[in-house]
């Protein structure tokens, strides 16, 4: 009966949702444990393909797909795979899905495949995917693993996009290929060069560090 009475302390739907463990698995990847800005994982694609916003998004979603699929398979097979050969098995699972992604992207858009180049294949050695398989999917059941992979993937997409958009905006004066500034805008060529990748990532990390510093001072 007590359940029917409206408890003034009863949490709203959204607070319950926010505090439930499964939402936590999802959210943590986007903000608190963001794979790029907080864990500093999977740096190679983050720097290499973020010269335009479009490339960054494509790379982010390709990685998310591989991450979700490999987390699913690893979590389903976690009791079957012998402990001694688990890393090798994970790498094989990941490599299979990366091959699928590689061919799929080639089928969807040849131009995109060309501009991403070997970096699609290099998703195999993205430490983010292996670390999620080893640290999460191998110890958890199906649903949390999927949520974890989705959250981490989305966090990765966000990070890639924030880098790619900034670099394209400053380096090309455009966003998704559309001109943003007037013709007088002097492009910052350095931003689309390799060096720009290092600088942009350094600046985003700096921002995160400052925010962290502020928060710990506020407490």
């Amino acid at each position: 009966m007590s359940q029917l009475v409206k408890d003034p302390k009863e949490k709203s739907f959204f607070t319950t949702l926010a505090e439930s463990p499964s939402t936590n698995e999802f959210i943590k990847g986007i903000w608190k444990d963001n794979p790029v800005f907080v864990q500093v994982l999977g740096m190679c694609p983050v720097l290499a393909v973020t010269n335009t916003a479009e490339n960054a998004l494509a790379m982010g979603f390709a990685t998310t797909f591989v991450l979700v699929m490999s987390n699913i398979l690893v979590s389903l097979l976690r009791n079957v795979i012998p402990k001694e050969v688990r890393i090798a098995s994970y790498i094989l699972i990941i490599a299979t899905f990366v091959t699928i992604t590689d061919y799929a992207i080639q089928a969807i858009s040849v131009d995109l495949h060309k501009s991403l180049g070997a970096f699609i294949s290099l998703i195999v050695v993205n430490c983010l995917i292996l670390s999620r398989a080893e640290a999460f999917a191998s110890k958890n059941t199906f649903i949390p693993s999927v949520l974890d992979a989705l959250g981490m993937g989305l966090g990765f997409v966000l990070a890639l996009f924030s880098l790619g958009a900034l670099r394209e905006l400053l380096g090309n004066g455009s966003l998704f290929g559309m001109s943003i500034f007037s013709d007088n805008f002097q492009e910052w060529i350095v931003m689309i060069l390799p060096a720009g990748g290092f600088f942009t990532l350094a600046l985003w990390l700096l921002l995160f560090n400052i925010l962290k510093e502020r928060r710990s001072h506020g407490k």
Binding site: L193, A195, G197, L205
Partner: peptide
């Protein structure tokens, strides 16, 4: 990491 990345950028240049 931040200072390392900044230096890497300068090295890359």
């Amino acid at each position: 990491t931040v200072i390392t990345l900044l230096i890497a950028g300068i090295l890359s240049l």
